[in-house]
């Protein structure tokens, strides 16, 4: 039982770490690149405007998709590794 418990606790820790990593990227592209750091990225031209604008209208959405699939893939692997899948 104790093993089961520490196994489960480790699984949860790994999950939380993964979520924090993904959310850091999520915040970086949307609040960072697209909004707050847009002036810093102004020097990088993209199709008639700057990189920040591209992140605001397309880049962040594309990143979000990648993040969700990445998370699903890593979590399903964690389910298997810790034997906690269905």
């Amino acid at each position: 039982m104790a093993d089961d418990k520490s196994n489960a606790a480790e699984y949860w820790k790994a999950n939380v770490r993964l979520i924090l990593g993904c959310l850091a990227v999520w915040a970086f592209v949307s609040y960072g690149c697209a909004i707050l750091f847009r002036p810093l990225l102004a020097g990088i031209p993209v199709g008639g405007t700057d990189l920040g604008f591209w992140f605001a209208q397309q880049g962040s959405i594309l990143t979000f998709i990648v993040l969700i699939f990445f998370y699903a893939w890593r979590m399903n692997a964690l389910d298997k590794k810790y034997g906690l899948g269905e």
């Binding site: 979520i19 993904c22 959310l23 999520w26 949307s30 697209a34 604008f53 605001a56 209208q57 962040s60 959405i61 979000f64 993040l67 969700i68 998370y71 699903a72």
Partner: peptide, 21 residues
């Protein structure tokens, strides 16, 4: 224009937190 990108990011970015949290 750019100012209303908020709708694009807001209405899609919610799915990231929905999927993980």
């Amino acid at each position: 224009g750019y100012a209303n990108s908020t709708f694009l990011m807001g209405w899609t970015g919610g799915y990231v937190i929905l999927a993980m949290l």
